[in-house]
């Protein structure tokens, strides 16, 4: 897991992976570069937060950090990378994922539980917390994403229906998360790490993280 200055969900994802999913987690510092200890069996996680303050477009500075250069190479070698919230924004800024994340349609930060689902999956209750989470790409790119089955999560209602009301930020085609064409780089706005603990009253995120970390893309999109 990479820590940028301004990351603030780093501890949360670490706690969820270690304590709720029993995974080993190693912290990486944005100024370092060395990823030689990792193989493509490992997953690099970019946590949520406000990297470098996000005073420009979210993630626009983080993509230039020394560690991100190594993460980009790692991804190009086929290594698995998961970006959550600000991590998703960084992946889009880095060009590892297509599209951009715009200001929410109502121009306000929003934090609440929403439902999302995979293409053939059941609705999962997962929190969101972002001001710039409206996924946007031109319709050609969107069609391509859909044809390649790269849309991994969409906002839906509690019954799994894709409705405008269940879309919390105005994202194109209710898109909450996508992956790259080769299926090793994943990005999503919702925060599964906030839904991994019995104490918090929601464990839907465990299932989602398990899918993302342990299973191949094919299992996600059927």
């Amino acid at each position: 897991m990479v820590v940028f200055p301004g990351s603030n969900c780093d501890r949360d994802i670490m706690d969820a992976l270690r304590e709720d999913l029993g995974q080993e987690v190693i912290e990486l510092w944005h100024k370092d570069k060395d990823l030689s200890m990792f193989s493509t069996e490992d997953c690099i996680v970019l946590p949520g937060g406000f990297s470098y303050g996000d005073y420009l477009r979210c993630g626009a500075i983080a993509r230039f950090s020394p560690m991100m250069q190594s993460v980009i190479e790692f991804a190009q070698r086929g290594g698995k990378v998961l970006g959550i919230c600000n991590g998703f924004q960084i992946l889009c800024e880095s060009g590892l994922l297509p599209g951009v994340l715009l200001r929410n349609i109502n121009m306000k930060f929003v934090c609440k539980n929403v439902y999302i689902k995979g293409e053939n999956g059941v609705p999962l209750k997962i929190p969101i917390a972002h001001g710039e989470g409206r996924f946007y790409a031109d319709s050609e790119t969107l069609d391509e994403l859909e044809n390649n089955k790269q849309v991994i999560y969409r906002y839906c209602d509690a019954d799994g229906k894709l409705t405008p009301v269940s879309n919390p930020n105005g994202a194109e085609r209710n898109i909450a998360g996508i992956c790259n064409a080769s299926g090793n780089v994943f990005g999503m706005m919702p925060h599964p790490e906030r839904a991994c603990s019995q104490v918090l009253g929601n464990t839907d995120g465990r299932r989602l993280l398990n899918d993302l970390l342990l299973v191949k893309k094919e299992a996600l999109v059927g």
Binding site: C9, D12, A16, F109, V110, C111, R194, C196, L200
Partner: peptide, 9 residues
């Protein structure tokens, strides 16, 4: 809903 009420888990 405009406040992040959940960060920190």
């Amino acid at each position: 809903t405009q406040y992040d009420s959940m960060v920190g888990t």
